[in-house]
Simulated assay, not measured.
Amino acid sequence: MNNIDKLIYPQNGRRKNIFYSGKGGVGKTSMACITAVQTAKKGFKTLLLTTDPAAHIGNVLDKPVTDEITKIDGLENLYAVKIDQKKAMEDYKNQILEDVRGKFDENTVKAMEEELNSPCTEEMAAFQKFIEYAGKEDFEVIVFDTAPTGHTLRLLELPMDWSKQIQLKARLSAGISEADKEQKEKFDKVIEMMKNEEETTFSFVMYPEKTPIIEAYRASEELKTVGIKTRMIVANMIIPEEQAVTSFFKNRRNMQLKYLEEIKERFNEAVVLPVPMYERQIKGMEMLERISYNIFEKESL
């Protein structure tokens, strides 16, 4: 079994969680879809989940994807879901306000409502949904297509903000409710899961160019501070050697190969997976199955 196999397939009967992060537009969604198709093909019941409000997993799969877990036609074992942040926020707010109405006076409830109308609450609501899906026991692999890097880092800091909201509720009601304790336990469990290298592969997707490398390196160093190691780097959009026939493309490919070496140097604890540029947009199950075979089963570049 090669290093990549260990990073994408479940080991020792434990579920595998694969996170793809990186700046917007580098190919995270395509890479998440390709990986989910590969693990499903290998017989693992797989959930493809996006936390990115701008994600287009439905377009890449060429199948409808909603905020309910849906089986994807055309491939056994593949399911997909997207987190609808606006809907999640409304549900989350209503749940909290429902809890405090009747216990406190109107002014206190209004103050809480105002406090809940913040971007932080929207992130919290999405995180709560993320926790709900990440805690599901009935999948052998979950592939997370995350929002751009900054959002992913915020996602990991959210339990701190969540604790503040809990403290606010505790001050008002002189104690933390059982439901809050249960939620806190779920949060802690998922954060621990993300730190467990046997269960989780955290990956950055990037182009082999200077700025994306520096940005991803900074983000990976920040992740280290919360105990999460970067295990895999996807160097995307590499010009295939057989296509580098003009001086322009030869120069571009040589530049990419130079940066590929820098990626290997900087992220020396991670496995680097080079992924070629394709001549057309990645779309549909047939193309995804072919690419997943080329990337994960054939010899890489």
Rank of each mutant, 00 (worst) to 15 (best):
P119K: 06
P240S: 10
L223D: 09
K86T: 15
L97M: 05
M160K: 14
V81K: 15
P119N: 02
P10K: 01
N254G: 00
T149P: 01
I34A: 03
S177E: 10
E209R: 04
N236D: 07
E140A: 01
R154Q: 09
R253N: 10
R15Q: 12
M232Y: 06
D62S: 14
E215N: 13
N268L: 11
E132D: 12
K136M: 15
N3S: 00
E178D: 06
Y133L: 15
Q95A: 09
A40G: 09
A40P: 06
R231I: 07
K110A: 13
I233A: 08
S203A: 15
K45H: 03
E132K: 12
E299P: 14
T46V: 05
D73G: 06
K186T: 11
N268F: 14
A179T: 11
H56I: 08
K164I: 07
T146K: 11
R266W: 08
T149C: 09
H151C: 00
E261A: 13
A125P: 04
N251K: 13
N107M: 05
E289I: 10
K136Q: 15
I34W: 00
A125N: 02
T211F: 13
F104Y: 12
G22W: 07
D91T: 15
E137T: 13
V143G: 01
P148C: 09
I96L: 09
D99H: 03
I239V: 13
E157W: 08
N251H: 11
E269M: 02
I228N: 11
E114A: 07
M1I: 05
F130G: 04
R171F: 11
I295F: 12
